[in-house]
Design a protein around this nucleic acid. Structure first.
Lengths: 346, 346
DNA sequence: AAATAAATTGCAAACGATTGCATTCAGATC
DNA sequence: GATCTGAATGCAATCGTTTGCAATTTATTT
């Protein structure tokens, strides 16, 4: 149906450095250097070669270049999904991080190779680094299980992890101040008059456990009830949250007046369950989320949440990775969070 | 701070095929073939070499392999963003497509190189294919401007585009039945009793214009008003939609009782604007979105929408791309849509 | 003009896997 | 024992860039 004209891309006449060199009557070394704007080459030579390259639509064979330089200019980004959960690759927050990383990487001349942890091979260092598919690895999410990540770190591969920076680890972790964020969220509800505040999420998950700590601290600081029933464990998806709240109310009635959710998706699931019961938000129950995904303010009522500054975080992660490329050690870093007050809380 | 032990990954002792061959006392050819399970090699030899490789944690240098075979096993996925819009890389629908593509590609043994159209180079065929960074290109979104895409097609690079399959093009386009989807959406509102239905979105955008056609057809079919003011043009973001509706109502009052939105994000923006004015959904105004993003059902009222089957679409796109790798021509394909009735419409 | 220094350019060896062809080896056949 | 066959393995060229070093040209100095 489609007639393809294989012109520039056909293998026969694909222009190589050597070909270009012949055309110009110089050596490949000269062309190679000229195209990199190496000052070793006379300025006029450089310029004429560059324009010749442009004229012939020349482009370097990156595979050859990688082989020779042992540099790929690619960073593998791995979504470290918890496989028994539905927190899928379509989680808006994770994807936002991917998007921001992509931009931060591009800005530094790197490309992003996207993978998820459910992929075939589990020896990431070998798969990505030793096989020279990528120069470094960024893992998004510590999940519940950090074995794979540890292995990469042990192998000495350049690595940065998005997660909770307070977790003691042998690798650099960049993440938000989860403890503080959750503390602020909880305190905000307390200030609004909430007395029985639910913590909704999975306290076993690395970042979430920090959030639980912040929640606890605020609760204790205000001398509020922190009975076990006020901790409602559920997967980090809106569906799980919806169901958890649904069941909880069915069994125990409305025994809380505030919810600190571990993510916006969780908060939104809870929100839905409450609204279906005509429970007024924020008057009967105040809700605070975490992440500040794009949709947070679109909801009714607009979701109060803790904003994670993913743009800044992405830049930091890339910077820390580049440091490792230069042989320097990378440091963990804490990214500031911010309480965004909207309408789901007083 | 972090003490790195460069073991397996240090350059000095990085194991190569040649090294492994020496260890085993055979030639590189044999090892190479054995690791690929080539029946030319005796079965026992194959197995012993394979286990030796595993034991030494050997992994092929992919750069070298690419250079030699001229195959990258990578597909570049380009988000073709409209640069004067905020429809950013964090658009949930686009990212869902990326996620599904990633899985579909992985399943076929390919990796996904993520890029966006705002990246440096605009000669994609050259940048990705000639430079052997990728074997093929998948472009997400035709945008308003298809010049770049046309160029890739002209260059003869393996290419598949996500967009509107009805658009006449020299390349394979995979996409939903936008016309029908929008027709069904509009008809659904009409069936619910709406008389003055607004089309909200950007009719100049390729896929959106098809959606406009479907809308028009349904309106005319029902002999309803299709005055110009019932077409409200706005960018495909929730923010733009929110503002468009806000201004429209401010200036003209509530002159419509239904909205056909070009995307869920647009629908949700409109929803918010309406709810802020205490306009009842779906009784005063019915709304239908497009895409069926994960969040659609979380909203209150849950959003009626046209579901795009991105999982299937991703599989088809990958299949069509693989066909081109084999020298066959690829065909455009239409993916079925489905009306998902929820609470934002009667 | 010769000698020296500096600026340009070219030579050729890598980088590590793949593969057509040649070689070896064991067993079968005459 | 010589020849042949087929199976198994090895040789060596190749993919296209990069780069240390050598070689050449040009400018500077004495």
């Amino acid at each position: 149906m489609y007639f393809k004209v294989y012109l520039a891309l056909s293998n026969e006449n694909k222009l190589t450095l050597a070909g270009l060199a012949k055309l110009a009557g110089v050596s490949t070394s000269t062309v190679s250097r000229a195209l990199k704007d190496n000052p070793l080459i006379k300025k006029e030579t450089r310029e004429s070669l560059q324009s010749l390259a442009k004229q012939y639509n020349f482009s370097l064979n990156h595979a050859a270049s990688r082989l020779r330089t042992q540099k790929t200019n690619v960073v593998a980004v791995i979504l470290n999904l918890v496989d028994d959960t539905d927190q899928s690759i379509s989680d808006p927050f994770l994807l936002k991080v991917v998007g921001d990383l992509n931009q931060a990487l591009n800005q530094q001349g790197y490309e992003l190779l996207l993978s998820n942890s459910l992929m075939a091979n589990e020896d990431w260092a070998n798969y990505f680094i030793s096989s020279s598919r990528a120069d470094g690895i960024i893992v998004i999410g510590q999940g519940k299980n950090t074995d794979n990540v540890e292995k990469v770190a042990k192998a000495g591969a350049p690595l940065v992890v998005w997660g909770d920076p307070k977790v003691e680890a042998s690798y650099a972790v960049v993440g938000s101040n989860n403890d503080l964020g959750s503390y602020l969220a909880t305190q905000h509800l307390i200030d609004g008059g909430c007395k029985r505040i639910l913590f909704l999420g999975d306290p076993e998950h690395a970042e979430m456990s920090e959030r639980y700590k912040g929640y606890s601290r605020a609760i204790k600081g205000a001398n509020l009830a922190d009975s076990a029933e006020l901790t409602l464990s559920c997967d980090i998806t809106s569906k799980a949250a919806y169901e958890a709240i649904d069941v909880a109310i069915l069994e125990q009635g409305l025994f809380f007046d505030g919810i600190v959710a571990t993510s916006d998706m969780v908060a939104l699931g809870a929100l839905k369950a409450l609204k279906e019961r005509y429970i007024n938000i924020p008057n009967d129950v105040g809700i605070v989320g975490f992440d500040d995904i794009a949709m947070a303010e679109l909801f009714h009522p607009a979701l109060t949440t803790i904003k994670q500054d993913t743009k800044t975080a992405a830049k930091i992660m890339v910077a820390q990775l580049l440091k490792q490329f230069n042989g320097d050690n990378a440091d963990s870093a804490v990214v500031d969070i911010e309480l965004i007050k909207r309408k789901s809380s007083r």
